[in-house]
Structures are given as structure tokens and as C-alpha cells.
Amino acid sequence: MSASPSTTAPPAATGAEAPPAGGSRGAAKRRTPISRRGERLVGYTFMTPWIIGSLVFTVGPMLWSLYLSFTDYHLLLGGEFIGVENYTAMLDDPMFARAVKVTLMYVLLAVPLKLVASLAVAMLLTQSRRGIGFYRAAFYMPSLIAMSVGIAIVWKALFAGGGPQDQFMSWFGWEGGGFIGNPSVSILMLVLLSVWTFGAPMVIFMAGLLQVPGELHEAAEVDGAGRWHRFVHITIPMLSPVIFFNVLMETVHAFQLFGPAFIIGGTAGGPAWSTLFYTVRIYALAFVDLRMGYASAWAWVLVLAVGVVTLVMFRAAKNLVYYAGEDNR
């Protein structure tokens, strides 16, 4: 996950490196149709492990969970088809509103903060300075280890009562103790953990920033534009496809946060349900309460919600994202 986005990121400016593809494909087809088919077969053959893997480990379980969401399936006792009862029950479930609230709060806090932080650092790290490679590596490092169990445990210690955060903040008159025991701020622990791990979006931002044509800045400078104006009127528009990509990826990931929340807050989302993330609640429903059917319904509502959010973002992007080289802005 940490390495691939940099390769799948849309290039900031579509260069002219690839000739129009249609012609050459047509030519190849005319020339050697049989060997093309053979090639395709070879291609699929090489893909079989992944095709089988995704069918068995992703598509299959997903369809199964979709079926389960219409049953009252109990992990041990099995279940029967009950129609949409699970979905209607969610409307009356006070825990549903809780989990949605916690998750939305996290998404709304963590995603913007993380993106602002990663853009700021990316701008610092695209300057040409001595030893810049070291800094790039150093800032990327946290994202490699962040989702590990070890870091979640370190985080717990950092935010314990009397721990570093408590001591530091009490110099400034803070009396709330460690974040771990304080439900009104405990979610900030996870927000900070997320912000700290800005490595992946940072690398993508850096790639984007390096693609912004230098002559645009030079021209603007000649016209007397200051740093801020150049940032707002050149960097941001030229970077908008990359920003869109990062917002999308980070939002989708934020909705699915589980590991650190589970380790820090436990299945009960402690303290006092303040870290009761949607995914944590799904886990508790499935593996503590053993209500697989109901948990599956929860999971599918999350899938739908993330889908809707993604769609809305794509709609909004039509007006907000500027692709250089396209005129229909």
C-alpha cells in the first residue's frame, strides 16, 4: 500500500510520451492474430495465481458476507434468511449512530490535517539542498511502520496519564490528563497517528510538485506575483489532480481504520466508546457477540457509504480538478 500509490498516481501533466495507442494495436492485430491470442493466454496464465487469489480471498468472501447480511447468522449456530431485518435493525441501534459519529469525526479531522501536513513537507523536500535524500527518507519512514501493532502500543504509552503528552501539555496548563483516559480527546491520538504517517501522500505530492513547469513560476515572478500568489494560482491548480487522488485515497482509507483503533481502544472502543470506530464495532459484533449476519450488514453499509462518498468526490472533482492539456475546464 505504501509503495504502489506513487506508481498508480495520475501524472500531474499528461506529457506527450505515448503516441496514440489505437493505430499500433490495429496494426498488430492485422499482422499476427494467432500469436496475439497466444500472448493473451500466456498473460492470463501468469495472472492465474492472482485471479484465483482474488476470487477465493476477496470476491468469494464478499459475496458470502452479502448473503450473510440477509440472515441472522450466528458464528456457531448458523442462521436463517431474514430479509432486510438486519438493515432495518441498524436504524434503531444506538451503537450505529455512535460508530458513525466517531468515524466521521475521524475522517473529517485526520484527512485534511494529514494532507496539509504532507503537502507542506513535500514542498520543503522538493527544494534542492544538500542531504535532501536523507530528509526524504526520514520523513517517509513513519508511514512504513505506522500501522504496526508495535507503534500502536508505543502510542498508548505516549498518551498515558503522566506520559510525555500529559507532561508536555501540563506545562501549558492542561488538566485533562493522558488522552488514553479522556474520552473527549482520545480520538486525537488516532488523528495524530494518522497525520504522523503522511509518507505515502507526501511522496505523491512531491512527484506532482516536481512536474509543475518551472517557466510558469518564472513568468509569474516576472509579472510580480509573490510566493503566496504563485502557490494559490499556479501550484494548487497544477497539483489539483494529485490533490484529488490523495484526498480520495486518504478518505477511503480513513473510513477503514481498524488496527490502531482496535489496539488503543479495544473492542469496546474505550474510553467510553470514544474510539468506537465503525470497523471496530463490526469486529465486536462478529467476534465478541458472534452475530455474523448483523455484522455483515454493517460491513455492507460501510461499503455503500464509501462508494457514495467516492462518487460524490468524483462529481465534485469535475469542476475542481484541472488537467493540463485538456481544454474543457
Binding site: P94, P183, T267, A268, G270, P271, A272, W273, A284, V288, D289, L290
Partner: peptide
């Protein structure tokens, strides 16, 4: 059989009472 889960829920809800997020009566109802 549900005791394990009931026990967990019991503790969770009492924690709500301790934090003052719920009154004992509301927590009991839930």
C-alpha cells in the same frame, strides 16, 4: 452462551456511567 458478550457489555455501559456520559437509568435501559 451469550455470557461472555453480556459481561463485556456490562463493563462497557458502566464505563459510560463512570464518565458521566450516561445516567445509570439510561445505561441500564440500553
Amino acid at each position: 452462551a451469550a455470557t461472555g458478550a453480556v459481561e463485556v457489555k456490562f463493563g462497557e455501559l458502566y464505563q459510560q456511567v463512570q464518565y458521566g456520559e450516561m445516567t445509570p437509568a439510561d445505561a441500564a435501559e440500553l
